[in-house]
Design a protein around this nucleic acid. Sequence first.
DNA 1: CCTACGATCCCCT
DNA 2: GGGGATCGTAGGC
Length: 200
Amino acid sequence: MLEDKEFKAFFSRDAAEVAPDMIGWNFFVNGVGGTIVETEAYNRLDPASHSFKGLSKQNRSMFGSPGCAYVYRIYGLHWCMNFVCSDASAVLLRAIVPIKGVQQMQERRRTNDLITLCSGPAKLTQALGIAGALDGVSLNTSPFEFEPRQQIPLISCGARIGISRAVEVEWRFWLSDNPFVSRSSARRINGSNRRHHVSR
DNA sequence: CCTACGATCCCCT
DNA sequence: GGGGATCGTAGGC
């Protein structure tokens, strides 16, 4: 866990900068979780972002303090988890490698398949027990826990998934050649828009 | 392998 | 009344 000041500074940047920097971190909720391997960035100038049209009832956490959670319900069924960054930008958590509390995750997800246990934004919230009650909560306090990465991994970037606007913006980031991301690497391996991202 | 579709809720237009 | 930062399953090739 980081000191409060360091933690705040880390998230007080645009999500497009923070999103690749989160790849390789460990993230836990009540001790359950694993390694972040896929993220996406959304910001206020971005037509695909919930914050694009300004403050509203359902996106208010996105306009809150950097370093807090923005949890929203999608399609009336699932929950998605974001890390709030500066100026109403946020990092969508899209996939993690299950490390701790695997049995509990398998029970919540009703599957034993490790590859698909947390390979999607709504799968991982179900596995980690994230729901609307955690919307707006500071990420630097219980039940959340972070472990920064020890070295900078090789990261790929490409177009974001499941959006209808600003589809060409390449703000999806993933750990290169990792099988736990939400879309299989086999499908993407010959893709023309696959490229490596230069990280700090 | 791929595409299509239904489930289900709430805010916004 | 529309539509969404999704998922699982069904069915075709």
